[in-house]
């Protein structure tokens, strides 16, 4: 259906626009007095936003009776991974300048880095198996089970954020509430359906 393609043609540039905005500011040397910190924060912000958006797709399509929303889920999820890669690369390449001694030190010493790493690595298999071919090869049920890893990534991302702020916890608390709500919705849905259809193995 052409309507479908149009919708994707809107969502894709929408998800890409933060990266373009960042590139535009970089081009104009307008990245605040501390550009590396700015890029780190900007890409981190968009990673967690995209994770929340991905998690929101399923509840929204049920609540709004818009089953067609499902076709955006993979795209938004891959954008979460995309911003996650930019975020990680910024830290690895720009901030730490590939200094393996520092990097490995941070992996073991800093709990907020460990939480971020769990969140990021959790998304890696999901990105790899995001194609239709992988769904076929794995089978729907196993594929779905694997992709529940996003719950772990989302929770670790919130912990990462909570651990890295110094004292102002408003934003990690906001993302924590959103992720909590979206996971709670799934739990309630699951419990409800289990009761409604006990015969399903």
């Amino acid at each position: 259906m052409p309507r479908r393609r149009w919708a994707k043609l809107v969502v894709f540039p929408l998800c890409l626009s933060p990266a373009c905005w960042l590139a535009w500011r970089a081009w104009n040397s307008n990245l605040t007095p501390n550009p590396i910190e700015y890029i780190t924060h900007f890409t981190g912000d968009w990673t967690i936003r995209m994770i929340v958006a991905t998690l929101a797709v399923t509840p929204l399509r049920r609540i709004l009776h818009l089953p067609g929303l499902i076709r955006f889920r993979r795209m938004i999820g891959l954008f979460a991974f995309f911003y996650g890669c930019l975020h990680f690369a910024t830290w690895f390449g720009l901030d730490k300048f590939f200094d393996m001694h520092e990097i490995l030190g941070d992996f073991v010493k800093r709990r907020f880095i460990i939480a971020g790493l769990v969140a990021f690595l959790g998304m890696l298999p999901l990105a790899i198996t995001s194609t239709a071919g992988w769904v076929r090869r794995m089978g729907g049920r196993r594929w779905q089970a694997l992709h529940r890893l996003i719950y772990l990534s989302a929770a670790s991302a919130v912990v990462h954020y909570y651990w890295l702020v110094k004292s102002d916890i408003r934003l990690p608390a906001l993302y924590g509430s959103l992720v909590g709500l979206l996971l709670l919705y799934r739990l309630v849905w699951w419990l409800w359906n289990r009761r409604a259809a006990p015969a399903v193995p």
Partner: peptide, 13 residues
């Protein structure tokens, strides 16, 4: 060391 930031190096703005 500080739990969040390395103190062995710094970035001059």
């Amino acid at each position: 060391d500080h739990p969040r930031w390395t103190q062995s190096s710094e970035r001059r703005l």
